[in-house]
Design a protein around this nucleic acid. Sequence first.
DNA 1: CCGACTTTTCGAACATGTTCCGAAAGTAGC
DNA 2: GCTACTTTCGGAACATGTTCGAAAAGTCGG
Lengths: 233, 233
Amino acid sequence: MMGGMPRSIAPKGRTGRPPLTSRAQILEGARRLIDRDGWEKLTIRRLAAEIGVGATTLYHHIRSKDDLLLLLLNDYAERFERPELPDDPRERIVVTATAIHDALVAWPWAAEILTVDGFVGLLDESALWLVEGLLAGARDCGCDEEQAVHVFRSVWYYTVGEILVRAHSGHRRGGEGAVVTREPSFSGFDASRVPHLAAIGERWPELAARDTYVEGLRALVDGLLARTLPPGG
Amino acid sequence: MMGGMPRSIAPKGRTGRPPLTSRAQILEGARRLIDRDGWEKLTIRRLAAEIGVGATTLYHHIRSKDDLLLLLLNDYAERFERPELPDDPRERIVVTATAIHDALVAWPWAAEILTVDGFVGLLDESALWLVEGLLAGARDCGCDEEQAVHVFRSVWYYTVGEILVRAHSGHRRGGEGAVVTREPSFSGFDASRVPHLAAIGERWPELAARDTYVEGLRALVDGLLARTLPPGG
DNA sequence: CCGACTTTTCGAACATGTTCCGAAAGTAGC
DNA sequence: GCTACTTTCGGAACATGTTCGAAAAGTCGG
């Protein structure tokens, strides 16, 4: 109805109505929207408006919003600066995993798609080299293929969990709160039933807020490799 | 408009319109709905219909759907059968974490709230003893309070990640699929850029489908405790 | 019995992701 | 130019979680 002219003349041999919109254009608009208004404002309708097309038109270029985010992830991964990898293969695993982690922290919108089915299979080569780096490190530590995949998956689970918990942190519920659901009270623990929790008490929020990702990662990797190497390794 | 009489005569001294609905009633309806139609069918409107009240009425008894699920989680936790804990404190950690894990696998709807802010603080004592068990095991392994919380959090991240990835598994996207987004292809990896991935190739889905939770958990716990105990421990 | 106050109920409305389907705008063959 | 055929476009509609505001149904003090 209001659509302008087709952006470019139809390439020869192309039948059908010429597209007004391209996927690249959509990604560009999405990036712009995120940079300008924040990723929470990235909705299908806003994005369509930003580009100047109808909302449902986008679904001819992307499968779903999740797919859009996946596309975006691969897009950002391309610009991602690769960390320098140390010589020690175990340390390579840690550095690579940390690089993935830090990237995901920097792209909070990615949290919504970290768990999509077959995630690894949906990654571009611009992101896959990180997976490859993890596998390579594991193999260089003496793992066979199967063990290397196990290392990757364990590290991935740990990382996904940390990222997702982190992403939902700071959403304090309720304010002055209805009478409805009790407030989280760390001081009211029953010392006879949960003595350790009671002992920690109000210190919990502070302890839980600490960034211990790398620490836990190192422990995990050490534990994983210890089961692969001969005890003297 | 259509509401029946108040379920019970107003308890003395209670002012205001007598409630038609109770939170217990809501939880009951939710459990019934989940058992009968599956947890995907648990929506606010359906639940309200199941109980026989208006949809928005529920919001006077629960804060949000997430809160409802949290309430449900605590509710289910009450019926939860406690595992027998072994003597070895390290093994107690593993068994307790596995108990949490298995419970969450059995309650797939819980996946939606695992990452809510301050999760632990929103748990009942019926669920908290599991957290306590983890902390107790860690302390019995020689951790101080701070280290015990670190052990808990690391195990929690790993568990949450595994559960969430698992919960989203098997959502094959697209069927015969539009031209829009490429299919996940594990055979098409570029062997020169991602040699290890290419070597694994089509074996990936099979390897990724294996249940390695406990294996990874053991590795994680070993790695965590190794940093606490003196090297000879 | 009446007005003030309190609590609960619920219909209307909103923003969201997404599907459906008819209209628009081209090419290909005649 | 006309009729297929193909592809893209986009408005209407749906289900979802949630907010708002007004009406309902009680208690309490007089």
